[in-house]
């Protein structure tokens, strides 16, 4: 993650690719729950237990974390001037996002059991 802080093109591409995936997934999830299934706890649990849905949802969260990282990184690079504070904030944000990722993973694993 910290390497991405020093690059220009790769984060820019990632931001766009993840945006496309986020949008497609939102359409997919909305379409599914609005047209094909009733949203109850039992249905939702069964849906999440499905391997394909687990992978798609994991990718959704991964995209969201990467997208958030590039976005917040851009704001920090724009506005925070002192190098040490910038580094500390970038590190903090990365830590928070990676932590959130692991937390999400834990929740998704629980569904499978």
């Amino acid at each position: 993650m910290s390497m991405v802080a020093l690059e220009g093109l790769r984060p820019w591409i990632l931001q766009r690719l993840t945006a496309v995936y986020l949008l497609l997934y939102v359409f997919y999830a909305l379409a599914y729950w609005l047209f094909f299934d009733t949203l109850t706890y039992v249905h939702w649990l069964a849906w999440l237990a499905d391997d394909v849905n687990q992978i798609l949802l994991s990718l959704f969260y991964l995209s969201m974390l990467i997208h958030a990282w590039v976005g917040i990184r851009d704001v920090l690079l724009d506005y925070i001037k002192p190098f040490l504070i910038k580094l500390l904030l970038l590190f903090g944000v990365a830590l928070f996002l990676i932590g959130s990722g692991f937390w999400l993973l834990k929740i998704l694993m629980m569904v499978q059991v």
Partner: peptide
């Protein structure tokens, strides 16, 4: 020479 987070990619 233009890659990197600042030279070009600060353009929003």
């Amino acid at each position: 020479a233009l890659d990197g987070p600042f030279k070009l990619f600060r353009c929003h």
